[in-house]
């Protein structure tokens, strides 16, 4: 028996909007730790890892570890039917081939049940070791989204370089080239508007902008984004989900052919 009651139901709506374009089908894993997902895109270039910790739910019952295969587009369709202020409960009976999403309006005057068919998904779970990153950039998520969108109108790839000067996002295309430099800026009043750069070693890596733009669909989940770079590893683009966990996107870099 599984029963997860999330007062901030719109969090789940936002999570689905953030991942459904990257991944079509995925297994949601439920354990005493929380509700999680790890899935790669179909070309095995990008990976999304989601964790919503059990403590973040108002009620969390998960009698045994369960993996539920879901079509994310269908799940998003169902969650779109929940009101933004609705409390969302995810329910599944042991061995059942369906999952139920229950939506309750805040004053309990409307209760809706949406039952969705589960699917068997063969997915490869990757082991992601803890790593030391050469540079960690923390910046407003809206700023990062803006840069990715702007650069993708010029080119297909972005070079992200971190030096003592700051973090530089560069692209080039048929019509010309573009560079955006963000410097460390901690003097602003609000911490969510600041940019911080923790650099152990300068690093410069090239990534496909198409994926970066897809990751920025998670912008509504967090006011800040953390970009962790190392020359030997995929970049990690992380959006913290307040009091609940995170959504992390991993993207393998491009190399000179």
């Amino acid at each position: 028996m599984l029963e997860l009651r999330l007062v901030q139901g719109n969090l789940l709506k936002k999570v689905l909007e953030a991942v459904k374009d990257l991944v079509t089908d995925a297994n949601f894993d439920c354990s005493s730790t929380g509700f999680s997902l790890q899935a790669m895109d179909s070309s095995h270039v990008a990976l999304v890892a989601l964790l919503l910790r059990s403590e973040g739910f108002e009620h969390y019952r998960c009698d045994r570890n369960v993996s539920m295969g879901m079509n994310l587009n269908n799940m998003a369709k169902m969650l779109k039917c929940a009101g933004n202020d609705d409390i969302v409960t995810i329910k599944a009976d042991d061995g059942s081939d369906t999952v139920t999403f229950m939506f309750e309006s805040p004053n309990q005057d409307k209760i809706a049940d949406f039952e969705m068919k589960l699917m068997d998904i063969d997915s490869e779970h990757l082991g992601i070791p803890e790593a030391e990153y050469h540079a960690i950039v923390r910046m407003p998520s809206s700023e990062f989204a803006r840069i990715c969108k702007d650069l993708s109108s010029i080119g297909d790839t972005v070079v992200i370089s971190v030096t003592k000067e700051g973090v530089k996002f560069s692209t080039r295309g048929d019509i010309g080239n573009a560079n955006v430099v963000c410097r460390q800026n901690t003097t602003v009043d609000k911490p969510e508007e600041s940019t911080t750069i923790e650099m152990h070693e300068p690093v410069s890596l090239t990534f496909a902008l198409r994926y970066m733009n897809s990751f920025t669909k998670a912008t509504p989940l967090s006011s800040t984004v953390t970009i962790s770079l190392s020359s030997e590893l995929p970049v990690v683009v992380e959006y913290k989900i307040a009091e609940m966990g995170y959504i992390r996107f991993y993207l393998a870099p491009k190399i000179e052919d």
Binding site: S43, L126, G127, L233, A252, I255, E256
Partner: peptide
């Protein structure tokens, strides 16, 4: 030109 690497070059299947 650039070649896109795959995640398997960095991470192993559990």
């Amino acid at each position: 030109s650039h070649k896109q690497q795959k995640l398997f070059a960095f991470f192993t299947i559990k």
